[in-house]
Design a protein around this nucleic acid. Sequence first.
DNA 1: CGCGCAGATACAAACGTTTACGAATCCTGC
DNA 2: GCAGGATTCGTAAACGTTTGTATCTGCGCG
Lengths: 347, 347
Amino acid sequence: MCPLKVANPTSRDIADLAGVSQATVSRALRNSPLVRKETRERIHEIAKELNYFVNRNAAGLRTHQSNTIALLLFDETGGADAQINPFFLSMLGYISRAAARRGYDVLISLQQLSDDWHIEYQASHRADGLILLGYGNYLSYREKLAALSAANTRFMIWGPILREHGGHTVGCDNENGGFQAARHLLSIGRERIAFLGQTSPRSPEFSARYAGFVDALQSAGKTPDPALKVDADNLEELGYQAARQLVESGAEFDAVFAVTDVIAIGAMRALEDAGLRVPRDVSVVGFDDMPLAAHVTPALTTVRQDIRLAAEGLVESIVGLIEEEPVESTLMAPKLVVRQSCGAHAQ
Amino acid sequence: MCPLKVANPTSRDIADLAGVSQATVSRALRNSPLVRKETRERIHEIAKELNYFVNRNAAGLRTHQSNTIALLLFDETGGADAQINPFFLSMLGYISRAAARRGYDVLISLQQLSDDWHIEYQASHRADGLILLGYGNYLSYREKLAALSAANTRFMIWGPILREHGGHTVGCDNENGGFQAARHLLSIGRERIAFLGQTSPRSPEFSARYAGFVDALQSAGKTPDPALKVDADNLEELGYQAARQLVESGAEFDAVFAVTDVIAIGAMRALEDAGLRVPRDVSVVGFDDMPLAAHVTPALTTVRQDIRLAAEGLVESIVGLIEEEPVESTLMAPKLVVRQSCGAHAQ
DNA sequence: CGCGCAGATACAAACGTTTACGAATCCTGC
DNA sequence: GCAGGATTCGTAAACGTTTGTATCTGCGCG
């Protein structure tokens, strides 16, 4: 006979049908060894039959957990219409999958730097921990990170290891990446390499890339030319403007290292518009290896950050924090990916 | 004097401090008119002081809500390593913002078509409703959508309005989009237009684009040439292969309409590799206007779907469903965006 | 035969809200 | 001075779990 269908079955309904107590149902569904195998299976069957799923609110209330991690994405632009940096967006898939493997859901939340962050995610028991993602303005981060720490919130940051904030991080060895980029350009015979990107202390990651860049130049016996350094925030349009400015300044250069792919792509467009050909006249190297990088023409040579590894590292670590295991900040090695835009392809 | 700090304050703690009952605290925090303005403000102050936030689990348990909507993203490729279509990914930002405006959080979940969907999102009270996003294989959707309906789940689908599935949709007038693309290519003098994309019944959206394409040809007195139609699923690599196949077939063509931007970008790469120049030798038009489209070289002429409007429509509708308001499926008008890849730029 | 013990299950107390209901207070007008 | 309505607040009962503790079997063994 068809077991009576209940609209929104509870564990008590299952219990009644199985002829056991509600507590036993709860234990059975969590596969507790305390309940006999046969009854456990019977209960599972009935639950499936009735389309029963445990009420996460009730379970969470009891256990003080949500099995959810909140992903806070920052857009550096601030506009209400702002696009999220595709580099971080592409990390989202890996994060979500890694979280799912560990039994966690992912809550996303776009944050403006100006916002009051949703520091209440954990306090309200909506999430067990946070992951912060974005090329942030660390100066304005600081106090907010302090607030997170003060509230005893568990969080992981994508970014550089900084003494100031108390949080754990997963990041990329930006200095080494900048070094690789410059060394490569030098190795293929480029002499005058321009740098495009913001290097103020509010973006330590970009500053580190620049430091590596300078280091490579100096190792080769060159000194960086201030005329070949143009500030640009991380937007395609600003990359375009920076390159245009560089061209119009009349400075001579035969290569461009852009601090992100987004800037590099804007720069390439500007160079084309100015009648310069990439890579014949100017070599271009970016940073990030976002999905787009391989598909622009010419395909962009860039410093790859392994976002999959990064995503999995972030998830592993935040889960570690949640489960009170010791967690170390990690630094990942970037890798130069040579494509067309630098002109190094011998074949 | 500093009010005693409680580790994880509850509404009862606030009540004690304020000298009122816990119920009053609850009411005050939800701005009920039942509590006097002064006490309400006092309670708010104390709550802020103590860093108190209502426990969402408890509240949700009581109200049977979660104030969360789950976003299910499908990747058409199936691989564990698969990238999500950037077109949908870029919708995510708008969805998240629109949801936040309405007081909802967004839970994301990547789904393989093969997966057992998380139909339990609503049953487990983790989400109040679902949004389904992706160029799906509708044949395999069907039974799962039926399951959703059967479970009385509220959901919105991005896609074509189909009789079969019970759900409400927000979609784009794909047929009209295909028509616009073809008409434009004809209007600039192209004669033999190839079509790249999958048109099986399992992807009704692409079929509709093709139908519009054919319609435009016929309106111009032409009949579509089967030799100029190549199947391709929605991946850059497959677009590359399709275009290559087209070239190698020896068929003559002077334009390509690709059913998505992703395919178009792959096709452009193949054309370049084959020594054909875009747009001089071949005009290319895509579909979607994903962020990348404007930045490839040559910039891609494409049919734009207004993802912002779409995202907001989806959110409005799912919130409508949740709040038991009447909801209509909607069809949005696409718009041709002319860039370089079709060669129509007079200036 | 009784005792202890182990395995399986039941009982019941939380978890922190929301909200129906009732009680207290205050005002207003007669 | 008091009925009666408005305003404000407290009481208590849910919501559906998880889990510590008690209970109940049956069985082996002294």
